[in-house]
């Protein structure tokens, strides 16, 4: 090729482990250890056995975080998932009560969630100029609205035949199935986001949508897939929600979207897009789960736990920015 200067460009990367340890993930691991030490000190019941026993309810929300991470990396948001959980849980109970065999209940619940996701996906890709916040705000109201209609004036439903739901909340030894499932799906999601070409394209969309499109990334196709999967994850979450309470009501899943977003954002996944990874999200999810269990064991009000999560969340997003601008100011 043209006029070579023979310049050589370095292509040896820094050690990724070093990057993780000295990055946000390293801090998160420290926080995780700190939270566990604190909980151990705070509650005499805080031990492995109780942790595993109490975990399933909280783990259901981690499913949501796994897909929410993709949406946030794209620089978008889905605040309809809590309502999707409600609708899927409601229908799961009703289908089960109608006498459907349990495998069918599972399929139907996932299908309901997926359909809700499809609605979002369809609207958002058909009208890409609409902000996801508004579209999912309206579907948030609609999905829960449908659940309200289905549930009728009573506002709740319980499962008559709990056998199937009992089965999925079973354990191997003292480890609940759901933990295996969460870890498995987190690994899969982490590999897809961090290592696959699909994940790379998701980052490209979140960094610069237009440039991604010019580079041959099928932006709308990817958005469609992710929003649909978000619904599927909500269906999965709904299944385990029902398994933990054998019923559903109009407030099932309220605020789950915010919890999922908080987990991801605390894990370093920027809501402005293009930044963060699944490792951070996963560690932060477990920080929040452990904190909830530990504080809950000493009957600390759920609201106080939310307060702590709120403070952690704000600290997590504000501190890097504040330090960044301080560093700049010092340099000046």
């Amino acid at each position: 090729m043209a006029g070579k200067s023979g310049r050589s460009i370095n292509n040896i990367p820094e050690s990724p482990i070093k990057k993780l340890i000295f990055g946000w993930e390293g801090i998160l691991i420290l926080v995780f250890v700190g939270v566990n030490i604190f909980c151990k000190w705070f509650s005499e019941y805080y031990n492995m056995f109780n942790l595993l026993r109490q975990m399933p309810v909280y783990l259901a929300e981690v499913f949501l975080m796994l897909v929410m991470a993709f949406i946030l990396v794209m620089g978008e948001i889905d605040i309809s998932v809590g309502s999707t959980v409600c609708l899927a849980a409601t229908l799961a109970c009703i289908i089960s009560n109608a006498g459907a065999p349990f495998p069918l209940v599972i399929l139907a619940t996932l299908a309901v969630g997926t359909c809700c996701g499809l609605v979002n996906a369809f609207i958002l890709t058909r009208f890409p100029e609409l902000p996801p916040m508004i579209v999912t705000l309206s579907t948030q109201i609609i999905f829960r609205g449908i659940a309200e209609i289905v549930l009728g004036s009573g506002g709740s439903v319980s499962v008559a035949n709990t056998a199937g739901f009992k089965a999925i909340s079973g354990k191997i030894g003292s480890v609940p199935y759901i933990l295996f499932l969460v870890v498995l799906l987190a690994v899969v999601a982490g590999i897809i986001l961090g290592r696959s070409t699909f994940g790379r394209k998701v980052y490209a969309i979140g960094t610069n949508r237009l440039a991604a499109r010019y580079s041959g990334v099928a932006v709308e196709k990817i958005r469609f897939i992710i929003y649909t999967l978000m619904g599927t994850a909500a269906g999965l979450c709904a299944l385990f929600m029902v398994a933990s309470s054998y019923g559903a009501n109009t407030t099932t899943g309220t605020g789950f979207e915010m919890d999922a977003i908080a987990m991801a954002v605390f894990g370093g996944i920027s809501s402005t897009g293009g930044k963060g990874n699944m490792i951070g999200g996963f560690i932060s999810a477990f920080i929040i789960v452990c904190l909830r269990i530990g504080l809950g064991q000493r009957n600390v009000n759920g609201q106080v736990i939310l307060l702590i999560i709120g403070v952690l969340l704000i600290a997590a997003v504000a501190l890097p920015n504040i330090f960044g601008s301080l560093r700049k100011a010092v340099k000046k």
Binding site: M1, S5, R7, I9, N10, N11, T197
Partner: peptide
Amino acid sequence: GLNDEKKEREISKQLLEDVDTKAVDIF
């Protein structure tokens, strides 16, 4: 479906050197 990052580094280094980009490294 998984990205081959080693190959990616080789290919991009080659391409960037081909057009004589004034850059220190590919990162």
